[in-house]
Write a protein that binds this DNA or RNA. Structure first.
Length: 528
DNA sequence: AAAAAAT
């Protein structure tokens, strides 16, 4: 690129990119005037119908770089039944929903039919939208193929195809699906392809499916931002020991914590740690892929809106998700793959702000620590002494010893069955004392976001003396489950009167189907 | 010693 262009680009505003007036006005309303580098680089070419190879990470404004030109181009022509005009493929459900939000925001002056095809949600609503004719189809690969096999979807009318986060699709084993899907779409289409990195498999894919693409690359964010203070925290390796270490660090950091993500390597540990933290009256929520879709969305929304201070999460939350800058990242588990460390840490210290990242390390973690230090090329500092200073008793002591808090027996039911959350990944429980705030009926029918154990943990609600959720004026007596899977945990459940006085069972029952409580983001199909 | 995604 010539230096003339470079200078010109710095002075660019959205008005210079060739977007339609209606799109421009939505952008202005959203408060943006100056495009990011990826937007300035990609939008003019995308408007000309060229294929784009965008190499950019999240947080660079990548989504708007394809959403804005797409809406402009969609102004001509209209959708036919079962033949979507554009298709955007995303690796995760949350990302797909996020892209939908962008279409709603920037398409507010248009009558766009938007269909979101993701798993974990009933087919009916999605099929109706397809039937009506979708201008914009946003999908995760599995559900998209499922719809196609049911014959409800023809991809022969797709004019623009977007493949987002291609390298992540690769990590998740989606590449064969992506290839299948690409082959169903006529080659006269325009293809916009985005990836944060370009491993060989991805390069091959671009060679196969892009035609004379314009390559737009934006500077990689520094691997681990210089503004992030990273510290290692030694701990005994028992789970209770790690939880105690975590609580200690959180309390130490408390005055500085605006909001934080706590990463665990495994979903069961997310659920368990979440229960433990709420029991210790921390303002925490949970997010992992086995939670039902509503709960996932509700948690994310609550965290984004600042209603939750701590989010315990699996690596779903490590990449891509549009979570605002957090002040702290805690790695309750050290990541097994060192790249994940970089992604997790990347959730803080964005846009030049300062952030802190603490990683709990046990003796068994040494090799993963070595890998991280090798990858980032820096030696990480210990917060208060390295592993050689871990107290020996911490390793062999009984986990049931007294240590100030309540015994952490949450993972066992009365029958001794381990209360693991299966595929359906129910929400973890909340403190029993919440019962006095919440009438049973409300628990059965309130949306997850209003449930104390979900978006607003009991401690937080009590402190802020907010009113308990009221029963909904109108509700279906028995919200339907959105799938027919058998309840795996049903046979193990104690009878109602035998159950401990915790409300997580009610959460299970009340939150699976959508009933009348379908979140707004899933209803959107037309102009807003 | 993992997570994610169709069921």
């Amino acid at each position: 690129m010539s230096s003339d262009n470079q200078t010109a680009q710095e002075a660019l505003t959205f008005a210079d990119l060739g977007l339609s007036p209606k799109v421009l006005s939505a952008v202005t309303d959203a408060g943006y005037t100056k495009p990011t580098p990826i937007q300035a680089g990609a939008i003019p070419h995308a408007l000309q119908g060229k294929d784009i190879l965008g190499i950019a990470q999240t947080g660079t404004g990548k989504t708007a770089a394809f959403v804005l030109p797409m809406i402009t181009r969609l102004e001509k022509g209209r959708a036919r039944a079962r033949m979507p005009r554009t298709l955007i493929l995303e690796p995760t459900r949350e990302l797909a929903a996020q892209v939908e939000e962008n279409f709603v925001k920037y398409g507010k002056n248009h009558k766009l039919n938007i269909a979101l095809l993701i798993g974990g949600v009933s087919f009916d609503e999605q099929e109706k939208k397809l039937e009506r004719g979708a201008d914009v189809l946003i999908a995760t690969p599995g559900r998209l193929l499922d719809h196609r096999e049911r014959g409800k979807l023809l991809l022969t009318g797709v004019e623009i195809l977007v493949i987002d986060e291609a390298d992540r699709m690769l990590d998740m084993g989606f590449i064969p699906d992506i290839e299948r899907i690409c082959e169903m779409i006529p080659f006269t289409r325009q293809t916009l392809f985005f990836s944060a990195t370009m491993p060989p498999e991805i390069t091959k894919l671009t060679e196969k499916f892009l035609q004379a693409p314009v390559r737009v690359e934006v500077a990689k964010a520094a691997t681990t931002a210089a503004t992030v203070t990273q510290r290692l925290v030694k701990s005994g390796s028992k789970a209770w020991d790690k939880r105690e270490t975590l609580r200690r660090i959180i309390r130490e950091e408390e005055p500085e914590i605006k909001n934080a993500i706590i990463f665990c390597n495994r979903k069961v540990d997310v659920a368990e740690l979440y229960r433990s933290l709420t029991r210790h009256e921390f303002d925490a929520g949970a997010l992992h892929g086995d939670m039902d879709q509503r709960a996932r969305m509700a948690m994310l929304a609550a965290f984004r809106e600042g209603k939750l201070k701590l989010l315990v999460a699996s690596d779903v939350a490590a990449r891509g998700l549009d979570i605002p800058d957090v002040s702290h990242v805690f790695n309750y588990d050290i990541p097994i793959h060192s790249e994940d460390y970089v992604h997790r840490i990347g959730r803080t210290g964005r846009a030049g702000r300062s952030g802190k990242a603490f990683t709990i390390v046990t003796k068994a973690d040494q090799k993963y620590l070595d890998a991280i230090e090798k990858l980032t090329g820096q030696k990480l500092e210990w917060h208060d002494g390295d592993l050689s200073t871990v107290v020996a008793s911490a390793e062999d002591d009984s986990p049931r010893r007294s240590r100030g808090g309540k015994p952490e027996r949450a993972s066992r039911s009365r029958t001794g069955e381990k209360r693991e959350r299966g595929r359906s990944g129910k929400l973890p429980s909340e403190p029993a004392r919440m019962e006095k705030y919440v009438p049973d009926e409300a628990m059965e029918t309130a949306p997850v976001a209003e449930m104390p154990g979900a978006a607003m943990p009991g401690a937080a609600r009590a402190e802020r003396s907010e009113p308990a959720p009221r029963p909904r004026e109108e509700h279906k007596p028995q919200p339907a489950r959105n799938d027919n899977r058998p309840r795996r945990d049903e046979e193990h459940r104690p009878r109602r009167e035998d159950r401990p006085r915790r409300r997580d069972d009610d959460l299970d029952d009340g939150t699976i189907g959508f009933g009348d409580d379908m979140p707004a983001f899933m209803k959107v199909s037309a102009k807003v």
